[in-house]
Design a protein around this nucleic acid. Structure first.
Length: 840
RNA sequence: GCGGACGUGGCGGAACGGUAGACGCUGGGGACUUAAAAUCCUCUUCCCCAAAGGGAGUGCGGGUUCGAUUCCCGCCGUCCGCACCA
């Protein structure tokens, strides 16, 4: 065993078995050690682990193992985000039950994860499709329901008339259903919503405290919540239609109120609907607006169009001033009040609309009062300035004028200063089978009634048929028939299931505490929460993270938990990428279908030339994926883990390459050789000792800052230094320390080396090495000598040399004397122990 | 359109305002070997030069500074998020 190569094929399994037997990574909530919670975003059980998972979980594992070695009790769990559409698709395609398919995938992926040797507490594993988990979720839903945070409202969905199913936006391709190819309709269905908007302000303010989150993610959430302050006010309709006698609008620029030329409402605004009911032309225009696409390109190019109604409204600050009302295609029903007043001079959309319909374009804001009569050019001026042509507002700044208009509106009662959010309530209804059933019963006399808690979990029926279109829950022969929990009359179960984002909004709490009689125990959960370090992809920067933050705050409001932010530290890792290859006919080729031929690439099968494309995210469609499993078989877990941490900074993309994994594998063997050949020598090697302590400090710092690529580089340097050193007691000690430093990233190798060095305990329970700060200070330093900022020489000098001595030393340099050629320096800058800059 | 990030050798990337290119990959040369693999040594930013040495250089143009990859201003390019948000 003490010579030859490290053999991961036997070693990996052996140590994984030892860890499992010793329950090395079980998180003990009764431990006296300080606790920490390391979590990676749990995977969807698609059936196979991909490189993105490997990278994500390797990073988390390094943190978890590093913390454990530092003496923390670490919670590092794993589970499965197991509900969702792919299981239903598989059911349709392969005639397997979604549950059967999902659990088979979980078994396969669990084995794959175990093969990589992650320090996970598998005793806490669960899947969100376990009735136990979603039963608790149903009870939490009822908690929110009782707290008034759940409501039902009509909402539009994408409806596939052939498959008779609701489609997600991503399933609508060019206006057609992805499977049926049928033209998708917009249908209104009564759906359940969670009042996330109640928390808009808190969720926004809370971002400020998240100083261990990437700035980018905080900004994305901030923009998503989209707070804007302004005036909400009512126009009186000159001639009321039916019982509608006023029209409410929202503006962020009340200061431009005297620049109004028109008022416009969205096509689905009640006023537009009322008019369309009486006027065929209006009805046609409304229909046209609804059929327009919402893609970025279409929106960009869509012309601003309107339908002029017969209605006029009265200007709130001048009762003799009438404004025409249009139905306009660019006004959105879901923002503000679904109606606007148009100020063409100072809003680009309004400008385009007014130009089209020859409406007045007035200047009411100028950069200076003197410029009041400057005409508006060929685009709107949205910038702030001073009010002009605005009666009593003239001369006030934009902010002052806005405040004044709000003051008058509130005084006179026709409007009030308000805050609008872009954030909308969270629609959680999904017309699908494979999800958490919404625990509600619809009773003809009592309405929507929550299920009795004694009946939880409401379990999905097993005997479902995916061969017919529509929601299997809805057409199941018996499942939906129920008794009303209130009046015991005949009633119908809700057949919608919850959005899978609900499942992932509290799983991190369940990991921390999993009693069987309730979703979690407050005290137990709070031993671990909040998650100290959460790691996942940026694709979840908005929705998942916002929903989880909301859910946690909602539970806090209900007194169920006393934390408000679930994730203290967040890290978003980059993607794993690979080169792409295309055959002559443009079809994508996978990496194992091509080979190198000098500087070119050829198709192995037929020898034809292959075009090498861009490096892109690994994806099935580009066929540039690399399956981790054969790589793990060939190189072992540690080489793969090591490669995942090397080279690229973790927040950036990592390009997979054969050469890269080879390099990682070489390093694993180098460390093994050092351990296998190290002997207890005699004597101190002070320079190696310094090098070692610098490495311990450097690697620790790099891991703390999640700069794994830097930790890796430092370990390479240390390894080289040890290899080059002569045998000594220091060298043997350095090898021991190296093994400890390498352990979080390459744990199997580390265990094997540790045993080889004669240790009887596992390195999994060893302590992280400490460094001696005095060892970081060198007694000789290299002084850079510059002339006018250009490097001319480097000198070795004792540390702590004073300025005069350093200057003298520099001026004595042969190279400096030659460069100066007798000239007298005008000035000399000395940075002690670093450099001397001679200004000539 | 709005918001943000990034731009350094052949490649991935390092560099408290202070020796640019650590470390890895690739490539060249060499050692060991019958040979190969493995391993080890060595070179590898560009230009001039036999060498010693010199010059240029962190997307482009300016600025601040004794000194700028780093700070400031203005461009160019790439990528990401949001998007008719009133």
């Amino acid at each position: 065993m003490s010579n030859g190569r490290f053999d991961p094929n036997t070693a990996d399994r052996r140590w994984q078995g030892r860890w499992e037997d010793a329950r090395s990574f079980r998180a003990d909530s009764s431990s006296n050690k300080p606790k920490t919670y390391v979590l990676e975003m749990f995977p969807y059980p698609s059936g196979r682990i991909h490189m993105g998972h490997v990278r994500n979980y390797t990073m988390g594992d390094v943190i978890a193992r590093y913390r454990r070695m530092q003496g923390y009790e670490v919670l590092h769990p794993m589970g499965w985000d197991a509900f969702g559409m792919p299981a239903e698709n598989a059911a349709m395609e392969r005639k397997v039950h979604p549950g059967e398919w999902t659990y088979a995938n979980i078994r396969a992926m669990r084995e794959q994860l175990k093969r990589i040797g992650f320090a996970l507490d598998w005793e806490r594993e669960f899947a969100t499709c376990d009735p136990e988990y979603y039963g608790h979720e149903q009870s939490l839903f009822l908690d929110l329901f009782e707290a008034g945070l759940v409501y039902r409202k009509e909402s539009e969905v994408n409806w596939d008339p052939v498959d008779r199913t609701v489609l997600a936006n991503e399933q609508v391709i060019d206006g057609r259903g992805w499977r049926s190819g049928a033209i998708v309709e917009r249908r209104k269905l009564a759906q359940w919503f969670l009042k996330i908007t109640d928390f808009a302000e808190e969720l926004l303010e809370g971002l400020e405290g998240l100083d261990q989150w990437p700035e980018k993610v905080r900004l994305m959430q901030e923009n998503w919540i989209g707070r804007s302050q302004g005036l909400q006010f009512r126009f009186r309709i000159a001639s009321p239609i039916g019982d509608i006698d006023s029209l409410e609008v929202f503006t962020t620029r009340p200061d431009t109120i005297f620049g109004a030329s028109f008022v416009a409402v969205a096509a689905d605004h009640p006023i537009a609907q009322a008019i369309a009911a009486q006027n065929a032309d209006a009805a046609q225009f409304v229909a046209e607006c609804k059929s327009g696409g919402t893609s970025a390109a279409e929106v960009e190019t869509a012309e601003k169009k309107g339908f002029k109604t017969q209605i006029e409204v009265v200007h709130p600050l001048d009762s003799s001033w009438r404004l025409p009302v249009y139905i306009a295609n660019f006004v959105l029903m879901h923002y503000g009040t679904g109606a606007i007043f148009g100020v063409p001079g100072h809003d680009q959309r309004d400008f385009e609309f007014a130009s089209h319909y020859q409406l007045p374009i007035r200047r009411v804001v100028a950069q200076a009062v003197e410029l009041a009569s400057e005409p508006i050019g060929n685009e709107a001026e949205a910038s702030k300035g001073v009010a002009v042509n605005s009666r009593f507002l003239d001369g006030l700044t934009t902010d002052q004028a806005s405040a004044e208009v709000i003051r008058r509106a509130e005084l006179a009662g026709w409007g009030e200063g308000t805050i609008q959010y872009r954030l909308r309530d969270w629609g959680v209804s999904r017309q699908r089978y494979w999800g958490t059933p919404i625990p509600i019963v619809h009773c003809p006399s009592c309405g929507a009634v929550p299920v009795s808690r004694d009946d939880l979990p409401i379990v999905l029926p097993e005997d479902v048929d995916f061969n017919k279109p529509g929601n299997p829950l809805d057409r199941h022969p018996t499942w939906k028939h129920a008794r009303c929990p209130r009046c015991a009359g005949t009633a119908t179960r809700e057949t919608d299931t919850l959005d899978t984002f609900v499942d992932s909004s509290w799983y991190f709490i369940r990991f921390a505490s999993q009693p069987s009689d309730k979703p979690f125990d407050k005290d137990e959960a709070e031993k671990w929460l909040p998650v100290a370090q959460y790691i996942g992809g940026v694709e979840h920067a908005i929705l998942h993270l916002l929903y989880a933050r909301f859910w946690t705050r909602a539970l806090e409001r209900l007194g169920r938990i006393s934390i408000v932010e679930p994730f203290k530290g967040l890290f978003t890792q980059g993607m794993v990428t690979h080169e792409t290859y295309r055959a002559g006919d443009g079809s994508w080729l996978s990496p194992d279908e091509v080979k190198r031929d000098g500087d070119d690439w050829i198709h192995i099968e037929n020898g034809e030339p292959v075009t090498k494309g861009r490096v892109e995210k690994m994806s099935k469609s580009k066929r540039n994926t690399v399956d981790p499993e054969p790589i793990l078989m060939k190189y072992g877990a540690d080489a793969v883990r090591w490669f995942m941490l090397s080279d690229s900074p973790p927040e950036r993309d990592l390009e997979w390459s054969e050469a890269g994994i080879e390099g990682a594998s070489r390093f694993v063997q180098r460390v093994w050789r050092l351990a296998a050949t190290s002997a207890c020598g005699d004597g101190d090697d002070i320079s190696l000792k310094r090098r070692l302590h610098r490495s311990i400090a450097g690697v620790s710092e790099a891991i703390e800052n999640l700069q794994f690529n830097k930790a890796v580089a430092q370990l390479y340097e240390l390894t080289t230094a040890i290899e080059k050193a002569d045998p000594s007691a220091t060298r043997h000690e350095a090898v021991r320390s190296l093994i400890l430093l390498v352990a979080p990233a390459a744990p199997h190798l580390a265990e094997e080396c540790w045993a080889e060095l004669g240790e009887s305990a596992m390195i999994a329970s060893a302590a992280w090495p400490a460094f001696d700060p005095t060892m970081l200070i060198e007694d000789e330093v290299t002084l850079a000598v510059q002339i006018n900022g250009k490097l001319r020489d480097t000198l070795t000098a004792p540390r702590g040399l004073d300025r005069a001595a350093a200057e003298a030393l520099a001026l004595a340099s042969e190279k400096v004397r030659r460069q100066l050629a007798g000239a007298t320096p005008r000035k000399v800058i000395v940075v002690p122990d670093r450099l001397v800059n001679i200004v000539a």
